[in-house]
Amino acid sequence: MTKRRKVGNLLALAVLSALAQRPMHPYEIATALRSWGKDQDMGLKWGSFYTVVRNMDKHGLIAAVESVREGRRPERTVYRITEAGREELSDWARELVSTPVPERSHFRAGLSVLAVLHPDEATRLLRQRLDLLERDVTTAREALGQHARQIPRLFLVESEYDLAIQEAEAAWIRSLLAEFTSGTYPGLDAWRAFHETGEIPAELAELAERTDFTE
């Protein structure tokens, strides 16, 4: 079970990871996170950035060190990570690495309503997705290879994970398409008949009436 955290927004985790390197003011933190690609890793929403920073300060995860001014720019507060913040960073990392949580994708949502499409159209669209995925996999594999020559593998592990997920998805789609094209997918004839005649086969009609499904 995941913990209820004082500041649960993943922006807080990102900020802690930045301040674990050195004290910074918020603009520096945001710049560093973008340059490290943390905004992509964590799907950060920047609109709440300053609110998150203030809440972290309020809860003692970070602390103000000094205020600095550069030229005519507004005064900026430099923050450091506190001991409580370091403990939170480590504990949060342990939780994220060790505990699976449901992560619903747009693709899963589309698959859940695949029946509204004719099987031939579903097949065509899945082939289209597979083509795009294979292109992305090739690009990601090349990029990972280039980065591996410059960056320690420890700091590329999330990219390895992304590539593995893409490859697994592509393999699953190939398998599904093979069943569609060979006609061995269970219920394919009933699915096709519904779209071509407008009549719901008895087995599908009975299924549609059920409301006792559980995940």
Rank of each mutant, 00 (worst) to 15 (best):
A193H: 08
G85D: 04
K3R: 09
M24C: 03
L114F: 05
G37E: 06
T197W: 07
P152G: 05
T77Q: 09
S48P: 01
E70S: 13
I151Y: 06
V68L: 05
G187Y: 03
S105C: 12
E88A: 06
L61Y: 06
T77L: 06
A170T: 03
H106T: 13
E87C: 11
D131G: 09
V137T: 08
E83F: 03
P119S: 10
A190L: 13
T99A: 03
Y79V: 05
I165C: 12
T123E: 14
R192Y: 07
H118V: 07
E206G: 07
I165Y: 14
R54W: 03
I62G: 01
G43Y: 09
L163W: 01
W191H: 03
S48C: 09
A178D: 13
A93N: 14
R73T: 11
E179A: 09
K58G: 02
Y161R: 13
H106M: 15
T211H: 15
H25Q: 06
A140V: 13
P152M: 08
R174N: 03
A63P: 11
R141W: 05
P74R: 13
S48N: 05
S35G: 08
S182I: 00
V15F: 00
V97Q: 13
K6I: 08
L111F: 09
E66R: 11
E199I: 14
A190V: 07
Q166I: 05
Q40S: 12
F107C: 07
K38I: 05
L154R: 15
A64L: 10
R135Y: 12
V65H: 02
E134P: 02
S159L: 15
E160S: 07
E209W: 08
T214Q: 11
G37Y: 01
R54P: 02
T82K: 06
D57V: 10
Q150A: 14
F155N: 08
L44G: 02
